[in-house]
Design a protein around this nucleic acid. Structure first.
Length: 798
RNA sequence: AGGGAUAUGGUGUAACGGCAGCACAACAGAUUUUGGAUCUGUUUGUCUAGGUUCGAAUCCUAGUAUCCCUGCCA
């Protein structure tokens, strides 16, 4: 099986650039969970991205326990995380790191910052610090301790470590910028005093480093090159970069942020998951309905399926919630080729074949294939697996299935009052028993409540006809078993959203965020628990499974994928858990009028299109009187009103345009300034002077130049500082394109793309843009677009 | 509110300024001794309004919506 790959994304783009530029000899990434909980499907995405990216670029990946906060962290979690990741198939070799192993080194770096005057010991209370930090609109004010001397800071910091102070009495803060609009930069805390017992370092430390200080250092110490994290850390990147610069790491890691991925019909917040466990809503962290990896593992999902899922959800810079169908598809797709088919009846109904002889000796033994024709057909080596794993020719991939006078069929597979389109057994009707022949239901026995208890049927000859096929097991031979039928834990796709009426979830995935442990837990999600998420039935499974390996995953035909519950199933008391149902188009069809529990909620009615019609027209941004005056001056000079407004509001553009020559070229120069140079201008990346633009505008106006050439040259001039006209002279771009050259270019393009030409003639006229682009490129932009269009139309017309 | 980030079908994700593609879902048909799988086909999309350009999902301007930041959590 081909290993799933991370799809190209903005981070792989960066990596490819870095590698091409020789910035790093090799890619090094890391996955840095905090050992204070179990991994869940959301982490799968992050770990897959971290690890698989490194694999694909021939680099290495690290697993790191981000264990800098003694509260809540434990060895049990650290080991569970490793176990889950190994189960997923990752192997980090010797590259397992614990942040706590480097406490001493962090401490030394902190001292260095103090010596450099970049950090200080603050001694105000937490509340006071919050107050002094200011808020979004008011800059922070310095703490009275901000100006302590290096010596005093060093001394205090050492005594903090020595345990001379009470928890919270002092902190070490970076001295960055109290007035920064980025709140993260307002002197972030680097160290706090905390007498917590750390699961690895015990009581060796009573000061602990904060994430913002520790994480960048740890990345650098490990030699990480590309440090990926989720979106809520964008603001923290400023600290990351500041530390790298102050501490002089070179080469240094860089942080890149990606959007988180949630999954429909579940929650991935650690606290909410804990609530489910502690509230007894599930049986534990490994309850198969939980999204934790442990639970999915117990459910019977394979690591390959989980990885395939991770690969299928794309990477972007937006938090998103993924359609549950994507996960289910990955699980089914994996199991379809992995799970041998056998039969089990979950909700049994007795059928007596009255024309078969009674007695023990009258059992027939059928040899039925484990695999359907299509799996056999698609097998790459022509072999298929036995439950033992041995691969054998299809004719040997069979099991013995007893067939006798008394059978069980699925209660659902008989209907005394069949709905339209029903293809199973009915009163007097026929149905095929998988692999055993066609039967007709002759008589139906019911109890006093009217429930069907027994069906008396006749086994017909092979010339009989039946519309449907059902599964069955031989009653005297079948193995009794408990079946656990799992369904989604929540009834609604977005249990974390607030929806007054459950049907139109008003949920925005952007709300997915890192947890705020300080805020109270919103337990509203519990309202949406699916009361039918676990249904337990007792039924029978065919006897062939008795000899199979315990971890065999089966497809119980027409029911779904099952395996033995690894915790509760015993040899003499089988418990099969349903990994996932088969897709069921009949249920969908039959349920159209009466939606069944567990069926996906109907699509919410399309949100009323925001009726922009009555709405506000976007008002032009208000200008100050000075700006209004500027607009008037600029339009007087020949700039368009829109350009004038843009320039008047932007100091960078205004300054650039200040030196522009009045006259006929002014309008064009202003337009270029706004449309072509605004970005680079603000970034300070424009090296050409405004005076050089007027001559270019003149050339353009005279018709010697195409717009395309002018703008290309302008962009290059802006970047290099060379005068545009100089570039034109040097490269001969001023020379026009003669008719012959144009015709040749057109002919060449058409000849090079016969398929596209045909498609165009076949009606795909949108291709005109493609051809135009090709000709423009071939001619270096020198072709007159109008002439190109004409030539193209002529060439394509015939 | 100050700063930051984001916006492409139902969902997720692509597209050097030039064919809006892929996956899942949905729908239709073929096939089928699983109402599974497979195969074929179809529907649905560039947040809004202006501008630049022969040509804009992409560049410029304004607006809208949502999320993040103001823990001694990570």
């Amino acid at each position: 099986m081909r290993a799933p790959r991370v799809a190209p994304n903005f981070i792989t783009d960066i990596i490819e650039r870095d590698l091409a530029a020789g910035k790093y000899p090799q890619v090094v990434t890391r996955f840095p969970p905090e050992p204070n909980g179990y991994l869940h499907l959301g982490h799968t995405f992050a770990s897959f991205l971290d690890f698989q990216t490194a694999v694909q670029y021939g680099g290495r990946y690290h697993l790191r326990m981000d264990d800098t906060n003694p509260e809540g962290e434990s060895m049990e979690y650290a080991e569970a995380i490793q176990d889950d990741l190994r189960w997923l198939g990752w192997d980090w070799g010797e590259h397992l790191y614990y942040a706590s192993d480097n406490f001493e080194r962090y401490y030394e770096y902190a001292q260095q910052l103090i010596r450099q005057g970049d950090a200080y010991v603050d001694s105000v209370s937490a509340e006071e610090m919050a107050r002094l930090r200011g808020d979004a609109t008011t800059p922070g004010t310095p703490s009275p301790y901000r100006s302590r001397s290096v010596e005093e800071n060093l001394d205090l910091f050492a005594r903090m470590r020595a345990g001379e102070f009470a928890d919270g009495a002092h902190v070490l803060r970076g001295k960055i910028d109290l007035a920064s609009p980025n709140m993260k930069l307002r002197d972030p805390v680097f160290y706090r005093i905390l007498r917590g017992h750390h699961y690895r370092t015990g009581d060796a430390w009573c000061i602990y480093p904060m994430y913002d200080f520790q994480h960048p250092l740890q990345d650098a110490l490990e030699g990480v090159t590309h440090s990926m994290c989720s979106l809520e850390f964008v603001d923290n990147r400023a600290i990351y970069d500041w530390l790298m610069e102050r501490l002089g790491f070179d080469p240094r890691p860089h942080q890149y942020e990606f959007g988180r991925r949630g999954l429909e019909y579940t929650v991935t917040s650690k606290r909410k998951l804990r609530r489910l466990v502690e509230g007894g809503y599930v049986s534990g962290w490994d309850d198969p309905r939980m999204p934790t990896l442990r639970a999915q593992r117990r459910l019977g999902v394979t690591p390959e399926a989980v990885r395939a899922f991770a690969a299928q959800i794309g990477v972007s810079r937006t938090n998103r919630t993924v359609d549950i169908a994507v996960y289910e598809n990955a699980v089914r797709d994996d199991l379809n080729h992995r799970a041998p088919r056998v039969m089990a009846v979950l909700d049994p109904l007795l059928v007596v074949l009255t024309n078969l002889p009674e007695g023990e000796g009258e059992t027939r033994v059928l040899s039925l294939p484990y695999w359907p024709h299509d799996v056999i057909r698609d097998s790459p080596d022509g072999l298929v697996a036995l439950p033992s794993g041995e691969r054998v020719p299809p004719e040997r991939a069979v099991r013995e299935v007893p067939f006798s006078r008394e059978l069980y069929i699925e209660r659902e597979d008989f209907s005394p009052d069949p709905p339209k389109g029903y293809k199973r057994l009915t009163r007097g009707g026929t149905v095929r028993l998988r692999g055993a022949g066609i039967i007709r239901a002759d008589e139906v026995e019911t109890d006093e409540a009217g429930n069907v208890t027994t069906i008396y049927a006749t086994l017909l000859g092979e010339d009989a006809k039946a519309a449907g096929v059902i599964h069955w097991v031989s009653a005297p031979h079948a193995l009794p078993a408990e079946f656990r039928l799992y369904d989604r834990l929540f009834r609604v796709p977005h249990p974390e959203g607030d929806h007054p009426d459950d049907l139109a979830p008003d949920f925005d995935p952007e709300r997915l965020s890192h947890e705020n442990e300080a805020a109270p837990l919103d337990a509203g999600f519990l309202r949406f628990l699916n009361p039918q998420s676990l249904r337990v039935t007792r039924g029978y499974v065919e006897p062939s499974v008795a000899g199979d390996p315990q971890d065999t995953r089966y497809q119980f035909e027409r029911q779904g994928y099952f395996w033995r519950d690894p915790v509760d199933s015993r040899e003499d008391a089988l418990v099969f858990g349903r990994i996932i149902t088969l897709k069921d188009t009949w249920a969908k069809e039959a349920g159209k009028d009466a939606p069944k529990a567990g069926a996906k909620a109907p699509q919410p009615a399309p949100k009323a299109e925001a009726p922009q019609t009555t709405g506000h027209k976007p008002q032009p941004a208000p200008l100050t009187p000075e700006q209004e005056a500027e607009v008037a001056r600029l339009t007087g000079l020949g700039a368009s009103p829109a350009d004038a407004r843009t320039v008047a509001r932007d100091p960078a553009l205004l300054a650039f345009l200040a030196g522009a020559r009045p006259g006929p070229t002014f309008g064009q120069v202003a337009s270029w300034t706004v449309n072509d140079l605004a970005g680079p201008l603000r970034a300070g990346a424009v090296r050409v002077g405004v005076a050089d633009l007027a001559p270019l505008a003149e050339r353009l106006a005279s018709g010697e130049l195409t717009t395309r050439v002018a703008r290309d040259v302008l962009a290059r001039a802006a970047a290099s500082g060379e005068a545009p006209l100089a570039i034109i002279e040097r490269e001969g771009l001023g020379a026009g394109l003669d008719e012959g050259a144009l015709a040749a270019a057109v002919a060449e393009v058409l000849a090079a793309h016969p398929d596209k030409v045909e498609a165009y003639r076949g009606g795909k006229t949108a291709l005109l843009g493609f051809f135009t682009g090709q000709v423009m490129r071939a001619t270096g932009g020198k072709a007159d677009p109008a002439k190109v269009a004409a030539a193209l139309r002529e060439g394509l017309g015939g």
